[in-house]
């Protein structure tokens, strides 16, 4: 298993690139890469040449998250002003603008079936679920307040929700918070199940294994990637190697590897069998805010692709095999 650089676009945005995702292929076009940046735009790129397809404007502050519907036609972008803009990928027509004050908006993810958009609600200590047909707020999953012995709650130790992840069967939703705890919810019953512990620093990215609905990977500022049995509440393994915060994690479609991006400016590829880093890409010159494996589908299913985006304003595309 290895990564091979295919293409890098320097100055892909006018400022730091903070978010990346793949809009799956539709009947009429191959998959598109979506990137969001501090320059307040979302850009769409055709792979493999990374040709700029379009630049979406409309946000007033930096774009912190982008998410694409599993069918590939709809996508959502959110910025620091906590508006979510849902738009048609191909026409850029605005479908809906979502906000749920006082919740902020951090990471967003569509559920595997595409019926729900989950939005990490920041300081509201909750995840908002939006119905993707009516664009109405379905439910707010709140993390129960811990009756801790710490009355002097500091801003850093709150259950400030940063990241969300859907289990591949869509039954579970996990969210990571600033204090390092991960909360697991039963989506159907809209019920909080339990916390996963082990991190004590912000968990900025989470992802479930595509094949094992119990296996969850988390990336934290403590520099480690943890593997959890999300049902059994057990820490299965840790992978250390990054020199700084791990900002993002994504799992390969075959479920055999994960990729991580870090403030140490590297992208690492981890072999899940060996539980060890097998490759380190250092082509970025600033922190790597996003990594995304291209979902299977479309014409060339077999060739795996990984995209990474960074504060250095660039986008990189790799072949994964």
């Amino acid at each position: 298993m290895k990564l091979a650089g295919i293409k890098s676009i320097d100055n892909a945005h006018d400022d730091s690139v903070w978010a990346v995702t793949w809009a799956p292929a539709t009947a009429t076009r191959p998959p598109l890469l979506l990137t969001g940046s501090l320059d307040e735009t979302v850009r769409l790129w055709k792979s493999d040449d990374l040709v700029l397809e379009r630049t979406n404007t409309g946000h007033c502050l930096g774009v912190a998250s982008v998410a694409a519907h599993p069918l590939g036609s709809i996508a959502a972008s959110s910025s620091l002003d906590s508006f979510v803009r849902v738009f048609d990928v191909d026409s850029n027509a605005t479908i809906a603008t979502l906000e749920a004050p006082p919740s902020e908006v951090w990471q967003m993810r569509f559920d595997p079936k595409g019926a729900i958009l989950a939005v990490a609600g920041g300081g509201s200590a909750s995840v908002n679920l939006w119905d993707t047909s009516t664009w109405e707020l379905v439910v707010t999953l709140s993390i129960p307040r811990v009756e801790g012995p710490k009355p002097s709650d500091k801003s850093g130790s709150k259950k400030f929700v940063l990241s969300v992840a859907w289990s591949p069967d869509g039954k579970r939703l996990a969210c990571g918070s600033m204090d390092g705890t991960i909360s697991v919810f039963d989506v159907q019953r809209a019920k909080f199940l339990h916390h996963l512990e082990g991190h004590f620093m912000p968990v900025r990215s989470l992802v479930y294994s595509p094949y094992d609905p119990r296996l969850l990977f988390s990336a934290s500022d403590d520099g480690n990637v943890h593997m959890y049995d999300a049902e059994g509440k057990a820490l299965v393994g840790t992978m250390s190697g990054h020199a700084s915060w791990v900002l993002c994690v994504d799992v390969s479609p075959d479920g055999a590897a994960i990729a991580t991006g870090s403030s140490d400016r590297t992208v690492r590829l981890w072999d899940l069998n060996m539980r060890a880093s097998v490759q380190t890409m250092s082509n970025h010159t600033d922190q790597v805010w996003g990594v995304a494996f291209r979902p299977p589908g479309g014409n060339d299913v077999r060739s795996g692709r990984l995209a990474s985006v960074s504060d250095d304003k660039s986008i990189s595309l790799y072949d994964y095999s």
Partner: peptide, 8 residues
């Protein structure tokens, strides 16, 4: 803010 989202 992006780095420290909870710092209002």
């Amino acid at each position: 803010i992006h780095l420290a989202p909870s710092n209002y």
